[in-house]
Computed example of a mutant assay.
Amino acid sequence: MARTGIMLGECLGLQWGDIDFGDRFINIQRGFSKGKIETSKSGQSR
């Protein structure tokens, strides 16, 4: 987590399909907030 720069809530919202180990890429699409997994505020992934 420290080497990627993602926040704790974003890390908790990750799913296996969001991680590409071959290309070393993580697609942040959702986050964990207030006890629920939600999409980002802007609705876009980063």
Rank of each mutant, 00 (worst) to 15 (best):
M1F: 14
M1P: 05
M1A: 08
A2F: 08
A2P: 09
A2Y: 11
G5K: 10
G5M: 08
I6M: 15
I6V: 12
I6E: 02
M7K: 12
M7R: 15
L8T: 01
C11P: 00
L12T: 01
L14G: 01
L14H: 01
L14D: 04
W16G: 02
G17P: 00
D18S: 03
D18A: 07
I19A: 07
F21D: 10
G22N: 10
G22H: 07
D23Y: 13
D23Q: 13
R24N: 12
R24C: 09
F25P: 00
I26M: 08
I26R: 09
I26L: 14
N27V: 01
N27A: 07
N27P: 00
I28K: 09
I28V: 15
Q29K: 15
R30F: 11
R30G: 01
G31M: 11
F32W: 15
S33R: 15
G35C: 12
G35F: 14
G35E: 13
K36Y: 07
T39A: 12
T39Y: 11
S40N: 06
K41A: 13
S42V: 09
S42G: 11
G43M: 02
G43F: 13
Q44K: 15
S45E: 08
S45L: 10
S45Y: 12
S45F: 14
S45P: 11
R46C: 04
R46D: 00
